[in-house]
Amino acid sequence: MLFDRIVRPSLYRLAFHDPEVVHERTVSLLSRAGGALRPVSRWYRTDDPVSVLGLRFPNRVGLAAGMDKDGRALGAWPALGFGFVEVGTVTRHAQPGNPKPRLYSLPASDAVINRMGFNNDGAQALADRLARGGKPRVPLGVSIGKSKVTPLEEAVEDYRYSLRVLHPYADYFAINVSSPNTPGLRALQDKAALAGLLAELKTISGSTPLLVKVAPDLTDDALTELLDVCLEHGVSGIIATNTTLARTGIAPAEATLAAETGGLSGRPLTERSAEVVRFVCKETGGKLPIIGVGGILGADDALRMLDAGASLVQLYTGFALHGPGLVRRVSRGIAGRPC
């Protein structure tokens, strides 16, 4: 297709100079595409409807948070074959994120390192955009996190604010307590902190599903404690996993880039993400639906996620590196598998 053969390669030739510029141009292009994508939507679309979290998904392949933080291209993602879209991570306060450069492409490793730091226009700006433009025609998830300027002891109110203003528009919320790029954020995965946060958010969420996004770097004991808290507070599901601080699986030619701080995603995360999904499924007895994300670069990777216990999967790095043809290959490769 045109995007796969011409547009994406042209954009990614710039990646050696500034991958963030490539990302921004891609989202900007898609935000303006509008009806121009309708002729290709039949090519990308896969009809494999499933019901998860009390929602109906046209297929099981979603766009992970991070690609379209501010919901600028919501009309494009379903046309490219995604069965659901997760925007964000957004925070109560608009923030520029960490200093640049903060995004590194590792093509030989099929990986990306980022330390973006939740750069976004803020929860209210996203709510205003959704009020003006409406939701996409597939389920919409909203990932919410803590603002960098907010002290850790005031984090609960940060999440409460974002949940309140975005509640009319989200089909589910992802509670991001696992990004490695906001100082102190991962402390919210600790038992007491997470329990306090979830107790408050459940008073607002009502029937809207709340999912907790977990880090791949947790020990089994820490993950067990986290899951106990999630079950106790009636969380609707788990998203596994976020990016990793580990640096295994990087090609020798990209060893210098491996020294950059930030979260690693892509192929090096494939095995670990599936391990976490399998652990979550076993520890909860299958009581919590799981969205599997991390290192999915083909249908076989997605099938392993489903076999490990995931009900849905998400793409980000694979899509960024290989374009929307990956969405079609993955969604058709897993179509018909039991949920």
Rank of each mutant, 00 (worst) to 15 (best):
K100I: 03
A76E: 07
N119P: 09
G134E: 11
K100Y: 13
L74K: 07
Q95P: 08
E153K: 15
G141S: 07
H167C: 06
P99A: 12
N59K: 05
V61S: 10
K100H: 14
R42G: 15
R72A: 14
S147L: 14
R160P: 02
P168F: 03
R60E: 09
A64G: 06
N114F: 12
V61L: 06
P136Y: 09
G133R: 15
D48Q: 03
L63R: 05
D47N: 03
D70F: 12
W77G: 08
D68Y: 02
L80E: 09
R42A: 10
A170S: 04
P39S: 09
I144S: 06
L103S: 10
V156R: 12
A33I: 07
K148M: 14
E154G: 00
V52T: 05
S147K: 11
V142H: 01
K146Q: 11
V149L: 01
V61I: 09
D121C: 01
Y159C: 04
T26R: 03
G83I: 01
R32N: 09
G75D: 15
L37M: 10
V156G: 01
D70T: 11
K148Y: 14
R132S: 13
V156S: 05
P39G: 08
A65W: 11
G122R: 10
D70N: 15
E154Q: 14
V142N: 02
L53S: 02
P101A: 04
K100A: 15
S143W: 01
V40H: 03
A155C: 08
T150E: 13
Y44F: 15
L80D: 04
A76I: 07
N119M: 07
R32S: 15
G75H: 13
R137A: 13
V165H: 00
T46E: 13
V156A: 14
M116T: 11
V40G: 03
G75N: 14
G141T: 07
V27Y: 03
V50H: 00
R56L: 02
R115M: 09
R60Q: 08
D47P: 00
G62Q: 07
E153S: 14
G97H: 11
I113S: 09
G54I: 00
S147F: 12
G97A: 12
L63F: 02
Y159P: 08
A79F: 01
R45Q: 12
R45K: 10
R45P: 00
N120I: 05
I113Q: 05
L29W: 12
P101H: 04
V85L: 06
Y104D: 02
Q95K: 06
G97E: 11
G54P: 00
N114E: 11
K100M: 12
V112S: 00
R129W: 07
L80F: 15
K135Y: 04
V87S: 04
G75T: 11
P39N: 06
A65H: 08
P58K: 01
S109F: 04
R56G: 00
S109P: 06
P96E: 14
V40E: 00
L80V: 04
H167V: 02
L163Y: 09
A79I: 00
W43T: 11
V142M: 02
V90E: 12
V40N: 01
V156T: 15
K146F: 04
R60M: 06
G71P: 10
N119G: 10
L53N: 06
D70C: 06
K69S: 03
V52N: 08
D171V: 05
R129F: 02
G117L: 09
D158H: 13
N119V: 06
R132Y: 08
G133D: 15
